[in-house]
Amino acid sequence: MNTPLSLPVRVLVKGASTVNWVSWMGGPRSDFTFPRAMEAKLLADGRPCDVHTVTMTSERTSMILSSWQREVLGFSPDVIVLVYGHYETIHLFLPRWLERHANTLRAKPRTLSGIYRSLVLRRVWKALARLQARIDSTLDPTLRRRRPQHVAADLERYITQVQKVGSPLVYVFELLPPASRYQAWFPGMTARIAVMNTALESMVDRVGKDNVRYFRVSDLVDEHAGGDPEIAAPDGFHYSPEMHRHIGTALALEIEAWADSQPHLGAEGSL
Rank of each mutant, 00 (worst) to 15 (best):
P168Y: 13
I159V: 15
Q161M: 09
V165L: 12
S180Q: 13
K164P: 01
V195Y: 00
R146W: 04
L175C: 08
V217C: 05
N211Q: 11
G208W: 06
V207F: 00
V207S: 01
R216A: 10
A153V: 06
P178T: 15
R157Y: 03
R192K: 11
V165M: 12
N211S: 07
V204T: 07
N197P: 07
Y171Q: 11
D154R: 02
D205S: 09
V212T: 13
F173K: 00
D210L: 10
M196L: 03
K164A: 07
V170W: 11
P168N: 13
R206F: 05
K164M: 09
M189F: 03
A191Q: 10
F186H: 02
M203T: 04
V204P: 11
V217Q: 06
F186N: 06
D210P: 10
H224L: 08
Q183M: 14
Y182F: 14
E174F: 02
F215A: 06
R157T: 13
V221D: 15
T190P: 09
N211L: 02
I159T: 12
R181K: 15
L155G: 01
I159D: 06
A191M: 04
Q149Y: 00
Y214G: 06
R216Q: 09
Y214C: 05
I159G: 03
E201G: 01
P177T: 15
A152L: 06
Y214E: 09
D154T: 05
L155D: 02
R206I: 04
M203N: 03
P177N: 09
K209W: 01
I193Q: 07
T198K: 08
V221R: 14
A179C: 13
K164L: 12
E156K: 13
